[in-house]
Design a protein around this nucleic acid. Structure first.
Length: 345
DNA sequence: AAGCACACCAACCGCCGTAGT
DNA sequence: GACTACGGCGGTTGGTGTGCT
């Protein structure tokens, strides 16, 4: 025999809360506190399920909830934490005072996720999306018949293709040629598995975020170097790809380099040239060198977002003229370049 | 003005780990 | 130990508002 049911769902209210219901819940919790959600509705005179009361309190009525737009700092923090924690909204919310997991989840799904996609960044892995160019298909087929793959043709497209993407593609290709069967990254878990494989196969490359001079010696990479030794890294390694720029400082959101708030008239892609900048402490989830200090500093930064609203608000504070949406627009330019590339070939 | 499409978000749904019976 | 509710969490839905044609 188990516990008695928490509530008889028959006859209970559902849907949006009324101001009267909110007031009852607030008054009751002010007097008695919360804790036993099962009995709370009955004691508070509410025709609601305890679960519904808990959600309403946690997501809306709590006095310490910060409402209004997410500040720039908050958004950066969310992106960084999501790259580490994934969809652990409660864990992310715990690091954003005044924000609820539901609010963060909604904001992620409606704003951040779309922006990352527009920028060609996979919102799950926080890595660049090769499928934008469908290069994965090109590269995969090339691996099966590498001798027929026209590198020079691909390299000749630098004026059309985003150079970062092209460089990433070539680096992947060079790695794949050394590690046949290596799957393109699909999700974080696979990435971890992949890292294990890398550590096993290339122990000299596992020092996080350290540029290692490991020459590529296979035919493909030699061909690549011959084709354009100036514009492409001659000793690109997976470690370099993951930790020193291709996936992190260039593409993955960082405090210092994730320049998607940049001037709208500037290219959104950041200069991919190798940087010795050691101030960027954030790395992808594949590199366990993330500094939480940056996040903590962000959290401690007072938000600039306004916090109006009453306790009963079903009206949206949405501003459809979100000027920050524009920072992904440059990616559209890139999309157009991709289309041109596809038409040409 | 009407109709449609899209964006936003509060609330619900279902699952899971924990704990009471 | 088995059963089952509770509390919490993440995913999804549906109502509402806004913009465009």
């Amino acid at each position: 025999m188990g516990r008695a049911p928490c509530c008889d769902k028959n006859g209970l209210n559902k849907g949006p809360w009324t101001p009267e219901e909110d007031q009852k819940l607030i008054d009751f919790i002010r007097k008695h506190g919360y804790g036993n959600w099962r009995n709370l509705p009955k004691n508070a005179g509410l025709q609601r399920c305890g679960k519904s009361c808990r959600l309403r309190w946690a997501n809306y009525l709590r006095p310490d909830i910060k409402r209004g737009r997410f500040s720039f700092e908050e958004e950066e923090t969310i992106i960084q934490l999501h790259s580490i924690l994934g969809n652990k909204w409660s864990a992310i919310a715990a690091r954003l005072p005044g924000r609820t997991d539901n609010e963060i989840k909604n904001y992620w799904n409606t704003h951040i996720k779309k922006r990352l996609l527009r920028m060609g960044i996979d919102p799950v892995t926080h890595s660049p999306r090769l499928d934008l160019l469908d290069l994965s298909t090109v590269l995969t087929s090339s691996l099966h018949n590498a001798s027929h793959f026209n590198f020079s043709r691909l390299l000749g497209m630098q004026n059309i293709i985003n150079p970062d993407l092209l460089r990433l593609a070539t680096s992947i290709l060079s790695f794949q040629s050394q590690n046949q069967g290596f799957p393109l990254q699909k999700n974080v878990q696979e990435n971890h598995i992949f890292n294990d494989q890398v550590q096993n196969q290339m122990p000299s490359l596992v020092q996080p975020c350290q540029l290692l001079q490991t020459p590529i010696q296979d035919d493909q990479s030699q061909l690549m170097m011959q084709s354009d030794s100036e514009n492409f890294p001659q000793n690109i390694s997976l470690n370099e790809w993951q930790c020193s720029g291709f996936l992190t400082e260039d593409y993955v959101p960082t405090v210092t380099n994730y320049d998607y708030y940049g001037p709208s008239n500037q290219p959104i892609i950041i200069d991919p040239s190798p940087s010795d900048d050691q101030t960027s402490t954030f790395q992808s989830n594949s590199c366990n060198t993330f500094s939480f200090q940056s996040i903590l500093s962000n959290i401690s930064t007072p938000s600039s977002s306004p916090t109006p609203n009453s306790t009963y608000i079903n009206s949206s504070s949405t501003s459809h003229g979100d000027e920050r949406e524009s920072y992904g627009n440059n990616m559209l330019n890139f999309d157009m370049d991709v289309n041109e590339f596809m038409q040409l070939h």
